[in-house]
Write a protein that binds this DNA or RNA. Structure first.
Lengths: 337, 337
DNA sequence: GTGAAAGCGCTAACAG
DNA sequence: CTGTTAGCGCTTTCAC
């Protein structure tokens, strides 16, 4: 592997000139630049990023930490982040925290050790100690999906409260009054917001929410299946259910199918977030979707701007909140007597 | 950030002793080891991987390159690879080649520059020049899914020919004779094998394959949709279709739905690979599935073994071929007159 | 068993 | 505009 020294020797300049020629072509005379480039090409020189990283304290690596890589929502986002990063000459280290703050911490430490230039994170923790643990991170941080109170960082996500509200409003207009809600992991930002959007909208319509109809699905397929089962087998079964994530919606749909409850005739279902194969799922889900690709694009460009210094490093974190889109399917129908 | 020097000073030893204490605890006296560890804890020392990497020429990073991260098949595999890697103290850099050899090359160069310890790759190229381009990679390489002729490296994948054969046999037994086949990207290993499994099985039953029934879906949803449409709207429409990937199967199912052809009554469909939530898709697909998690586990452990030296570095590449599993759904039914 | 010394390949003042 | 000089933090012989 050719080093900067080989190039310097070949071009009859010092190694610092070679370094400059690559990092700031403008600060080198045209002729020298030419010679250096020719020499570099001749010996097949490519800078060693590891050495650059050690000397400069910066790397061209960014970290992406999500709670579940195999969820297609994250998959789409990841793909876009990776695309943006690569375009800017960055590589992406991706990790799965499994929704466990301890695991997340371990990953963050690793990333920190690698001196990544920045991190995009879907945080899975909460509380004061959690927030404080971010103090030692010196690189730019962009949170997405989940927002952590008290943590000063950019946030990219969707209007979760609105998402729930749209679905609730839709079901109310269809005449439903007893609406079940399958909620995500307790204490998570998106969970709180989505539940809130639901209860607020109900309250605004003067309907008192039966708290026992808010079930705990923990953003997990199996849990959600159980929760849906319990909801569906109650004597006072709700006439409609809102599942507050794609995975939980599919689990609910499966429970509905397993019980043989006709949907939408006997039970209406509405979902937050979609899945790629929504078109071949029957009934077609009524849902509110986030644009995962766009979220990825915004997260990546924001982080890259922070890294590149386009944004003053100490600029306070900003929120980028996208409006989700309502899509009418045929899993929801007017309430029948 | 505490450095090795701080620890050395605090423990009253030289930095090389500190280095040794961590990399080869056995070569340091018990008492010294104790002191070093205590000092390290006191100053909060954590080795700088970048510096280690520069000095040793090795890193604790591995690369994973796939053709489409957002495909759930890769998602599951990725998740498992990441899990295995993290357990072994490695971080994984993941990239999406988009199935483009040029893009793949660029990524590989980047990875090479980062001195990753090893690479897991789903190769998307072919031919002599392609094979030669791997000569400059000095780190261990494990290929998965796609196999490249002439490239000496470990290979992890499924028996693709068998997968097709099982599906074909199944349809033949149901009485189907005119079977359409939606193939993947031309020249790819999996494509050739899957087509071959189909044609061989047909031939073995003495049925001549109508080559025009083998459509080109390029492992892509839109292409496959078009291909399926053409197949389905022919006057001499096949009575069954094998879609040779999950994405293409769903596209085909959608085409079937859009045309209103009753499945499985008028058209049988069988698929290679599954998708998550297959349970809520109707009709439930008859398919042959690969165990993506297991493929991930094997790929990761094999690579890690190569990196760790458990396997002689120059050991010739081995093949790890898993037998796929047949799952009967209700998208396939006996041929009707 | 432990330490001194020479790098790994590059960046970044600072002179000239 | 270009070269000199220090490192960045660690690994790795090679003596002692």
């Amino acid at each position: 592997m050719a080093t900067i020294r080989d190039v310097a020797r070949m071009a009859n300049v010092s190694i610092s000139t070679v370094s400059l020629a690559f990092s700031a072509p403008g600060r080198v005379s045209a002729e020298t630049l030419e010679r250096v480039q020719r020499a570099a090409a001749a010996v097949g020189y490519a800078a060693n990023p590891v050495a650059q990283s050690l000397a400069s304290g910066k790397s061209r690596l960014i970290g992406l930490v999500v709670a579940d890589i195999s969820n297609p929502f994250f998959g789409k986002l990841l793909k876009e982040v990776e695309r943006c990063a690569l375009t800017a000459g960055f590589l992406v280290i991706i990790s799965d925290s499994g929704g466990d703050p301890a695991q997340e911490r371990a990953i963050l430490d690793h990333l920190n050790g690698q001196r990544v230039a920045g991190i995009i994170l879907s945080p899975c923790g909460n509380g004061e100690a959690y927030v404080r643990s971010f103090d030692e991170l010196k690189m730019p941080l962009v949170m997405f999906d989940q927002k952590v109170a008290g943590l000063d960082a950019d946030f990219v996500g969707s209007d979760n409260r609105l998402a729930s509200a749209m679905l609730t409003e839709h079901l109310l207009q269809l005449g439903h009054r007893r609406i079940g809600f399958i909620a995500g992991t307790r204490d998570l930002f998106t969970t709180r917001e989505r539940v809130r959007g639901f209860t607020d909208t109900m309250a605004a319509s003067g309907i008192e929410v039966d708290r026992s109809l808010i079930a705990d699905g923990q953003y997990d397929g199996e849990r959600a299946y159980g929760a849906a089962m319990r909801l569906l087998t109650r004597p006072d079964r709700p006439s409609a259910i809102i599942a507050s994530s794609n995975v939980m919606a599919l689990a609910t749909l499966q429970a509905i199918g397993d019980l043989g409850v006709p949907c939408p005739e006997r039970i209406s279902l509405a979902s937050i977030d979609d899945v790629p194969w929504i078109n071949v799922i029957s009934p077609r889900l009524t849902m509110v979707v986030q644009d995962a690709t766009e979220l990825g694009r915004i997260s990546a460009t924001r982080l890259l701007d922070r890294i590149g210094g386009t944004i003053p490093p100490k600029a306070i974190g900003e929120d980028f909140v996208l409006t989700p889109r309502f899509i009418l399917g045929n899993s929801s129908a007017p309430l029948r007597a």
